[in-house]
Structure formats: C-alpha cells, structure tokens
C-alpha cells in the first residue's frame, strides 16, 4: 500500500493517471452523445401516456400502419379535431396563456396553419424498405417493437433496430413454416 502512495507522488505517474481518466470520461461522454439511437427532439412533447389513458387507439393517429408501409404522423387538424372541441379550452374565461404549455404550442400550429414537423423516431436506413401492413396483418402488436407507450410521453427507441433484431423475430415466428421462412429471410424482401 505504502508503495502505491509513493508511486502516486511522482508527477509522471500523476500525469499518466490524469490522461487515462480523461480518456475514460470522454469515451463515456462520447458514447452517451454519439450513440445512434438517441430519441430526437420533438416540436411538441406529446404525452402518449395521457392519450392512451383515455383509451385512444394507436391506429386513430397512426392509421397508415394497418394498410400501408408508413404508419403516418398526425397533422395539426387531427389533433385539433378533438382538442378544438374540448369545451374546457374554448371557455373564454380561460385565456390561452393559462392552457398547458404543450397545448399552447398546438394552438400556435393551428393558428399559423403550419404543419407540425414531428420527427420520426423509429427510422431505418434508405436501403431498407419496411412495411407496417404485413406486420400488423401477421398479428404483431404495436408494443412488440415500440414498447409500452402508456408509460411514455414522447416516443423513444425501445429496441436496437438493426437487421439482426428483424431477423431474430422473423426466424422465431417461422420455425415450423419453411416456405414462409424463405420469404421472410430473403434479401429482396427488404433490400431493393
């Protein structure tokens, strides 16, 4: 023990230790900031949990999921179709300034008639062609990939979205159907 303290008093060792610590800290910070699956900033901090608590279906706002490739993100008209009717917010004695902050933002989008530029969270690269429809048709539920949204406000990435993750599920679900498996692990099914 004494020897180690003696060593630590040498400036050369101290410098070396400092460098090592710096490298480790910057590595950790870098890992945190530059990892690929950080959820992006959204124009409105949309509270998914409240909406799901009101028993609104996923497909009400993302209707593309059951008939096309892209699930779609709601326009401000869709939000306003409900929120515009909520009497609580129409009462003149409640001024806009007293609304919840995120709803004020929505009101701003509606009044300026500008689209809400939602940022897609689950993204695949350009060379991958994902289609929601067959997944919903095969009985995969939203939460299998997107996590339990009733516990989240803005969408976050719940799974490591890479080809191994896709194939793992494709293989598991086609264990006793070799014909389907050939289709589901064919390169041309997603890459073209």
């Amino acid at each position: 023990m004494q020897k180690i303290f003696e060593l630590l008093k040498k400036p050369g060792i101290q410098l070396a230790l400092l460098v090592v610590i710096l490298v480790m800290v910057s590595g950790a910070v870098g890992l945190f900031y530059f990892q690929t699956q950080v959820p992006p900033a959204q124009p409105i901090q949309f509270p998914h949990n409240i909406h799901i608590g009101l028993q609104i279906q996923c497909l009400y706002c993302h209707p593309g999921a059951w008939r096309q490739a892209s699930a779609g993100l709601p326009t401000q008209q869709k939000c306003w179709a409900c929120h515009g009717q909520l009497k609580k917010y129409w009462q003149p004695e409640v001024p806009v300034a007293q609304w919840p902050v995120e709803l004020q933002k929505l009101r701003g989008f509606v009044e300026s008639n500008k689209p809400i530029e939602w940022v897609p969270v689950y993204q695949v690269p350009d060379f991958v062609h994902f289609n929601h429809r067959p997944h919903i048709a095969a009985g995969v539920n939203c939460e299998n990939c997107h996590g339990d949204m009733s516990k989240k406000t803005v969408a976050t990435v719940e799974e490591t979205v890479n080809m191994g993750w896709c194939l793992k599920c494709h293989m598991e679900r086609t264990q006793d159907d070799p014909e389907k498996r050939i289709k589901l692990i064919d390169c041309g099914t997603c890459h073209y």
């Binding site: 690269p125 041309g188 073209y192």
Partner: peptide, 15 residues
C-alpha cells in the same frame, strides 16, 4: 448479388 428464392430474381443488395 444473390438469387432470390421467392421471386426467382437476381438481386443486388446495395448495402
């Protein structure tokens, strides 16, 4: 460049 068993086409996997 692989042969698709499903579509019987000649694929080019760009990535």
């Amino acid at each position: 460049t692989v042969h698709s068993q499903v579509e019987q086409l000649n694929l080019q996997v760009y990535n």
